[in-house]
Design a protein around this nucleic acid. Structure first.
Length: 351
DNA sequence: GATACGTGGAT
DNA sequence: TATCCAAGTAT
């Protein structure tokens, strides 16, 4: 049963959203929204996958390029893998791009090109988990589903002054969030809570002074909001070392490899290289007059730091060694590389 | 439940 | 410089 507190919360937050909703390329305008128009499920899905663990600012241009190049799920499903991985390069978490393609192809081949409109059916699709299934159902189809992302966790933990640390407190937060989800405009409500978390109820220095929930927020009353939500401490990152091998032929072609689909940077283009470990071997992939470039590439992944040496050589024009890809001057685009590989290229180019 | 999985911006 | 953090998912 929904109590008065929750009804007031919904009204206040939706009113705030109507005044403050941020413009985003995947959203429809207020006029269309109030006339009952729904956003394109394809665009909602694409934006939500891109937004997983990624900021709106980082996603915007990627979304515009993807939808310009592939305006429909059919066109995306028909795209070659390499083109999609290249367009995703730099955005990170590359399993998302591999699952994006899998999902597009399932939707086209098994769902007649239409995204399912229920949480449970969406959850069965590749790359769609509990959050994204709820987000698509709510935003694209206006289903009363409860989204629970980092923003909602923070807003709810503060609103109810919940001190139990994440991720253990997730079920409790989910229950609170579900009790707040209204039957009216659930899609707008979901986006409203996330916008509030992103712009007002921020992780550090929350703007409680302008928060529409100020008078209803228990942690604001208790003065504990800056310490919430609590999180279990993270493990320190180890440092790993390795080399990459950058080879150019006399006619300007570059020697690369396609990384295996599983694991780090899976499916992406990259330079051949050593293992990344405490003490990498210094065995080059083939005999040549290798030059070790001055400087190094430093890059931090989710769970380790990486320090990379760059070895460079040149070859006469010809065939690529086994399992490697020779891309000529026009076919090679540094923007197709994941960031760590692009850093190595930049070091090589500026040598 | 714990771990693997990217990147860039803010502090 | 170091740490945190972002509209999480798969295994």
């Amino acid at each position: 049963m929904r109590d008065t507190h929750e009804i007031d919360f919904n009204d206040e937050l939706l009113a705030w959203y109507d005044r403050n909703a941020r413009e985003m390329p995947w959203r429809i305008g207020p006029a269309d929204r109030s006339s009952g128009m729904r956003p394109d499920p394809y665009r909602v899905w694409l934006s939500e996958v891109m937004l997983q663990q990624t900021t709106v600012a980082a996603v915007r241009d990627y979304f515009l390029r993807f939808t310009s190049r592939w305006p429909t799920v059919e066109s995306l499903a028909a795209a070659p893998d390499e083109q999609v991985m290249g367009e995703w390069a730099g955005l990170g978490y590359y399993a998302r791009a591999r699952n994006l393609l899998k999902c597009a192809r399932v939707v086209v081949e098994s769902h007649d090109g239409c995204f399912p409109d229920s949480h449970d059916e969406l959850l069965n699709l590749p790359g769609i988990g509990p959050y994204t299934a709820a987000a698509i159902a709510a935003i694209a189809f206006d289903r009363p589903e409860t989204v629970l992302d980092g923003n909602v966790e923070r807003v709810v933990a503060r609103l109810y002054d919940i001190h139990d640390p994440l991720p253990g407190s997730k079920p409790q937060l989910k229950q609170r969030a579900a009790a707040l989800t209204p039957a009216v405009r659930p899609g707008d409500y979901a986006q409203a809570v996330m916008d509030l978390g992103a712009t007002v109820c921020t992780p550090r220095s929350p703007a409680c002074g302008i928060c529409p929930m100020r008078t209803r927020c228990r942690s604001q009353a208790a003065g504990t909001q800056a310490d919430l939500p609590r999180k279990t401490p993270k493990k320190p990152k180890p440092t790993r070392y390795g080399h990459v091998y950058i080879t150019q032929t006399a006619d300007g072609a570059m020697l690369l490899e396609r990384r295996p689909d599983k694991g780090l940077l899976g499916g992406m283009l990259g330079w051949p290289g050593s293992e990344w470990s405490d003490a990498p071997s210094d065995t080059a992939p083939f005999a040549s007059d290798w030059r070790v470039l001055p400087g190094e590439v430093r890059h931090t992944f989710t769970h380790f730091h990486l320090i990379l040496q760059v070895w460079a050589t040149s070859l006469p024009p010809g065939a690529a060694p086994e399992d490697m890809i020779l891309l000529d001057k026009h076919a090679f685009r540094p923007s197709d590389l994941p960031t760590v590989m692009r850093k190595a290229f930049d070091l090589w180019r500026n040598q």
